[in-house]
Simulated scan of single mutants.
Amino acid sequence: MSCVYFVLTALVLLVLCGAGLAMDAHSYRRTDPVTGQQLLCDKCPPGTRMRAHCTISRQTECAPCGAGLYTEFWNYIAYCLRCDACSDHQRVVQPCNGTVNTVCECEAGFFWDQHFCRRHSACKPGHGVKAPGTPHRDTVCELCADGHYANIMQTHAACVTHSACKADEQLVLPGSRWHDNVCATCDHPIQKGTSSKK
Rank of each mutant, 00 (worst) to 15 (best):
A52N: 10
T99C: 03
A22Q: 15
T31Q: 01
K124S: 00
F73P: 04
F110M: 02
P46N: 08
V15P: 01
V7A: 12
R91G: 08
T60E: 02
T102G: 10
Q154H: 04
R137L: 07
C83M: 11
Q114K: 09
R118Q: 11
H156M: 02
L21F: 01
R119T: 07
G98D: 05
Q90F: 07
N97Y: 03
L173C: 02
H26K: 15
E169D: 00
H53I: 02
G66L: 13
A63C: 09
P46E: 03
T139H: 14
Y28M: 01
T185N: 00
N101G: 05
F73L: 15
R177M: 09
C65E: 08
A85V: 01
S121R: 06
T139P: 11
L39K: 12
D88S: 08
P132C: 07
T48L: 10
F116A: 15
Q94M: 12
G109S: 09
C96P: 08
H148N: 12
S121Y: 07
Q154L: 11
C62H: 07
R58W: 00
R177L: 14
T35W: 05
C117M: 08
C54K: 06
T71W: 14
K197G: 05
R118P: 03
D84Q: 11
Q114T: 13
A164E: 11
G175V: 13
V140Y: 13
K192A: 07
V34R: 05
M50T: 04
S27K: 09
S121K: 02
D84Y: 11
V103R: 14
L40Y: 00
N101E: 03
A158Q: 06
G98Q: 10
V182G: 02
V172R: 09
V140P: 04
L171A: 04
